[in-house]
């Protein structure tokens, strides 16, 4: 199985193992990665699982629908490669994925 890396704002790295049929948000939650609140439980409705995807990986994380786009626009810390982790479906193609956590969740 592949691995992915979450990097906290202070540089702390968390490596997690890829598990089938789980979003990136669930991977973070199940591995106790701090800084992902997921207040709505994965409904794309709160904006508190915001991650900034490493540029070289951004294209592989899938399309952004209009709901996600709208929630991301509300985040004061948005960046060009921002995503909501609950909307990223994890497959083996993301083996090696690196995402950065913002300093704050909205």
């Amino acid at each position: 199985m592949g691995r992915m890396t979450f990097i906290e704002h202070d540089g702390t790295r968390h490596e997690v193992e890829i598990e089938a049929d789980k979003s990136l948000m669930q991977h973070a939650a199940d591995n106790m990665v701090p800084g992902i609140d997921a207040d709505c439980g994965g409904e794309c409705a709160c904006g508190t699982c915001h991650v900034i995807v490493d540029e070289q990986w951004f294209g592989k994380t899938g399309a952004i629908n209009s709901n996600e786009k709208q929630m991301l626009e509300m985040t004061p810390e948005g960046a060009p490669t921002s995503r909501l982790a609950c909307q990223i479906e994890v497959t083996d193609a993301l083996d090696g994925l690196v995402v950065h956590l913002p300093e704050f969740q909205m």
């Binding site: 509300m74 004061p76 810390e77 300093e103 704050f104 969740q105 909205m106």
Partner: peptide, 8 residues
């Protein structure tokens, strides 16, 4: 206006 209460 949202920046007035932004976490930063």
């Amino acid at each position: 206006v949202q920046n007035v209460v932004a976490p930063k």
